[in-house]
Design a protein around this nucleic acid. Sequence first.
DNA 1: TTATCTGCAAACATTTTGCAGCGAG
DNA 2: CTCGCTGCAAAATGTTTGCAGATAA
Lengths: 116, 116
Amino acid sequence: MDEVLDASEDFLTAQELHGVLKEKGHGVGLATVYRTLQGLADDGAVDVLRMGGGEAAYRRCSAETHHHHLVCRSCGAAIEVAGPAVERWTQRVADEYGYIDVAHTVEIFGTCPRCA
Amino acid sequence: MDEVLDASEDFLTAQELHGVLKEKGHGVGLATVYRTLQGLADDGAVDVLRMGGGEAAYRRCSAETHHHHLVCRSCGAAIEVAGPAVERWTQRVADEYGYIDVAHTVEIFGTCPRCA
DNA sequence: TTATCTGCAAACATTTTGCAGCGAG
DNA sequence: CTCGCTGCAAAATGTTTGCAGATAA
């Protein structure tokens, strides 16, 4: 299953991944896809993106460091972007209000040049 | 139902809101809660926050302008924060890669002083 | 009456879990 | 044999929808 994830530049939902695998002949079960993805996500091996309908999309990321994504809302293509300024800003805001153990989610959605 | 939303400083899920209303004696149906919240969200009258499990939390926000939230992951209390720098940063990143029609999600999660 | 709103229950979609079987070590 | 991984099917979760009755104009 990993090969498909590696080969894709885009975010894939569990169900899309399952569909791709079935097309390729693999008799893979949906449960296994979910289980594997959950494991990979726990290990930080893939990035998780929660879409509107409560479904999750996964993508194997090249960068090992913390980063965010510029995602095409039409085709799902994702560019990894680093934002040091944003990291500092979130930390500063949290400090200001005494919040600790801070995490943040930052995603940028748009329409990519090819889909425009 | 609006009164409960107005009175709450925290993000509430549809189910939490439904529970509060039932406790108060209102025989409100869960479906009505969802329908009302969806309407309010469409009108931009409430801010929507998508939590981990694919569930959505809602909050009536005072600020009319675009803003983000510093949310306590323990009690749900939310502080509205403006981040002009982040807005500029997202736009700049999107421009750089030719993405158009750009939107973004920025949420900061942490543990608030009272819950720490 | 006509249109809107409500509650209930059923439908839906996504994800998780229980369980039995299979294969590697 | 034992352990872990797999698939299937059932359950759990959160949300949406169809429908009939109540309410208001």
